[in-house]
Simulated scan of single mutants.
Amino acid sequence: MIQIGLCDDDLAILSQLQVLLDRYQVERNAEITSAAFQSPLELLAEIEKGMRFDILLLDVLMPGENGIDAAREIRRYDNNVKIIFLTSSSEFAVESYTVGAYFYQLKPIWEENFFRLMDAVIAECEKSSGMSLILRCKSGITRVELNRLEYCEVLGRSLWLHLVGGAVLESAGRMDHLCEQLADHENFLRVHRSFLINLDYVRNIMPKAITMASLAELPIPRGKYGELKDRYLEYAFQRKQVFL
């Protein structure tokens, strides 16, 4: 299911976008849900509460706070949402890409162009969906890019996800379920009942511990060193990494 947010202070534009989305959904047999907002402040309030979108259609010029500034705020909570700016002027085109815009759509919006844009952005969402996790954290619903996940550990009844750069997210859930979600990703390996690692960030493997890129040392169960070392070497050779 693709979640789309619409934000424009012009009710006529919001109505047009909803009609176009409805037509697109029928013609493409697409699974889409949408939510409309008349101001960026309303949109930001919902995002701060934990609402997440795959795609945002965001007007640039709106009273109170323009779309570019709103996008900067949104990026504090979600780096993955595809933002498409809507405007009748190309004045902010260059600035829009400084906040990671996916596209800059000039008004008026024609159905053929809109459908072509939706085809492209939804295909991109579906491609990247397999490369991220959606987690319920204390900070709200959070999307985590898998290539930023260094390792995960169980502490108490929570999962603690350690990301590249030092950020740590606490999430409810079970390690068994997380491993099931990542079963198709060969770079993730459960090395202990309480630890799951990303093999791309292994720095050293010793008989009693694995050292990660962050210098965190994770324990190796007794008798598992040989198996884990072989699994890592197999993965490294498949990735054509060189050993000297």
Rank of each mutant, 00 (worst) to 15 (best):
F53P: 03
S34E: 11
K208P: 02
H162K: 02
A123C: 10
V168Y: 03
L146H: 07
E227Y: 11
Y104A: 03
A36T: 14
T33H: 11
I55P: 06
D9Q: 11
H162F: 06
C152A: 10
E217G: 04
H192T: 06
A12C: 10
D119H: 12
E48C: 08
Q16G: 08
N187K: 06
I13F: 03
D78K: 05
R239D: 01
K49D: 12
E111A: 14
M175I: 09
G50Y: 12
E227M: 09
M212I: 05
G64H: 10
P207I: 12
E111W: 10
H162G: 02
Y97H: 07
Y151Q: 02
K208H: 09
N198S: 09
T87Q: 01
A12E: 14
E112K: 15
A236V: 02
V164G: 01
I68F: 06
E153M: 04
L199S: 02
E150S: 08
L86M: 13
E124M: 10
E27R: 15
T33A: 13
G50V: 05
L106Y: 04
E42R: 15
P40I: 05
K127E: 09
C137E: 00
D200Q: 05
C125R: 06
Y151M: 07
I4G: 03
R76Q: 13
T87S: 15
